[in-house]
Design a protein around this nucleic acid. Structure first.
Lengths: 217, 217
DNA sequence: TTGAATACATACATGCATGTATGTACTCTA
DNA sequence: TAGAGTACATACATGCATGTATGTATTCAA
């Protein structure tokens, strides 16, 4: 029916279509409504094709998570990361519609034992990518400045909260107070960066950077 | 079979059992696995009883949300609320296992059109209970101190993030960094309270309260 | 006290998601 | 190029959740 294709070409193409369809369905309709029938309908393949490549939905979700994590953490290995740059990277990611797919799978892992058995290790492995240890230079500074790590985790949890707000809003838009919260986070990140930077190289950073306590509004 | 009971007594007792069973099932097994069969099994009633009182699961979830909101917001109408007291009230609530039931229903509302049609108004009405306007004295101060409202919303979203972390963890426990994040929030709340309080009654608050920039760690 | 309404209980029918089993066309390898 | 393996497609069977319809016991109201 199609043009001539190698086996691996057909396989990867079909699996890719299934992964994309599953992601889209998770975002638009949630975990509960994301059935194999719905996924195959979106992907334009039959359930036979799905069953040939994946033993269960959980298997497919494994590939979905791999795909999403790869998208989310691209470019996160900058060796000169600061709290501000880390925050800005996170901000560029959390508002993506696909983030809802991750939230759906997180909750599903907790709820569905069979799914969790297969996926939980992958979820846990992903979680380490968001820990400070994933940013060596940040982690190093945190050893001397525990307050920096506190700010890091505060930023992290706040972003998750904002992502959940988007995921639960009817059109996927952010809450009315989103901008002001982000502004607050940016201020905190910059202030803490200034503190940590100032103590590293004593007296040359303070003049060019705003003071650590600046809360301009 | 039972001792003599009035009609309304039997009704309220049965509905109460159904609400509790539904909440427990939402917490333990999530929205997807919370079927009418499962709820009735937990409640110890037949599906006939359930169908007699509720036209659908969505109707029951309406009562579930009412019950949970009543529990969560009890005592939130203190006229002398501060950011710190509001935060402490929130901290005493968000870690309750029942909070996961609310999260499940929030996401389900977004995912399930039929459910959302009936429940979304109720969810939105609940959301207003968490807005600053629900704390008149706080809202009044925020008019002169927009930064206070920023801190308020930051606290709000961070707590949601922490609640989600608990909801998605295998045993419902908080993340390792939970304590340090909460400590950071408390510091921010106290500092901002001091700022707002200091500007209200000029010079008597600063001596007894820690300075607004204190970040003791 | 008697009819009517309420509060259930039971049984049946329907729809849907999944799993499996088998058939077919294409591709690779020897 | 011929057999074998791969990549699907189709059909059937099963299980489960929901809705409905009807039956029964209890309570209420006149």
């Amino acid at each position: 029916m199609n043009v001539r294709q190698t086996h691996t070409q057909r396989s990867t193409a079909t699996k890719s279509k299934l992964v994309e369809a599953a992601t889209a369905s998770l975002v638009e309709r949630g975990y509960g409504a994301t059935t194999s029938v719905e996924i195959c309908r979106r992907a334009g393949v039959t359930r036979g094709a799905f069953n040939h490549h994946y033993a269960s939905l959980g298997d497919l979700y494994g590939d979905v998570l791999d795909d999403l994590y790869a998208r989310f953490s691209s470019g996160s290995d900058d060796p000169r990361a600061t709290l501000q740059s880390t925050l800005e990277q996170a901000l560029s990611v959390y508002a993506l519609p696909e983030f809802k797919a991750v939230l759906e799978l997180w909750l599903a892992c907790r709820n569905d034992e069979k799914l969790g058995a297969g996926l939980f290790a992958k979820v846990a492995a992903c979680a380490t990518r968001f820990e400070p240890s994933a940013y060596p230079h940040l982690a190093e500074r945190f050893e001397k400045h525990p307050a920096g790590e506190a700010v890091y985790w505060l930023i992290f949890e706040t972003i998750i909260g904002l992502a959940l707000a988007r995921a639960t809003s009817p059109m996927g838009e952010g809450p009315a107070h989103e901008a002001v919260v982000i502004e607050q986070l940016l201020t905190m990140a910059r202030d803490q960066d200034a503190v940590m930077c100032a103590k590293e190289n004593h007296n040359n950073a303070l003049s060019s950077q705003p003071g650590p306590e600046a809360n301009r509004r």
